[in-house]
């Protein structure tokens, strides 16, 4: 279901109270004119699953953190913010998880310049 960025924390709290206690993955997809952040949740006892989708504009990339509700969001948010250049507000800026580089754009964005440097190395 599609929600707005402001409703995220409240919606996660509601769903956790109604049984969705297992956060499967947090990831994002880069459609060139907007980004979509995805939150996958699952209810183990009643066997249902739900996906929350948030649309973000490329000039205004930030999301609130949900680490108080689900502890597993810790590393998922770090990986998403590193790969897609999305800032996570509400926690201290953590160090880089997967790469040790200092480029300007996240690797999984469509505008990332790659593939040419393999000729020089």
């Amino acid at each position: 279901m599609k929600i707005k960025r402001e409703e995220l924390a409240q919606k996660i709290g509601e769903m956790k109270a109604s049984g969705y206690s297992y956060l499967v993955k947090i990831t994002a997809v880069d459609y060139v004119d907007h980004l979509t952040a995805l939150y996958f949740l699952r209810d183990i006892d009643k066997n249902r699953e739900e996906t929350l989708e948030i649309d973000l504009a490329p000039t205004d990339l930030w999301l609130p953190t949900i680490i108080k509700a689900h502890t597993s969001a810790d590393w998922y948010e770090r990986e998403m913010s590193e790969m897609f250049d999305i800032k996570i507000k509400g926690r201290k800026a953590p160090r880089l998880l997967l790469e040790r580089w200092d480029g300007t754009e996240g690797p999984l964005r469509k505008g990332f310049a790659w593939g040419e440097d393999y000729k020089s190395m």
């Binding site: 499967v24 993955k25 990831t27 997809v29 995805l38 996958f40 597993s72 590393w75 990986e79």
Partner: peptide
């Protein structure tokens, strides 16, 4: 293990892999 695939004409547009070992290490 969960695979999330956004399909395009000839190539995948985006493939996201939910790897179990990543979150087991946390």
């Amino acid at each position: 293990l969960m695979m999330y695939l956004v399909a395009d004409d000839q190539k995948p547009y985006r493939l996201s892999i939910r790897s179990p070992n990543f979150i087991n290490l946390m």
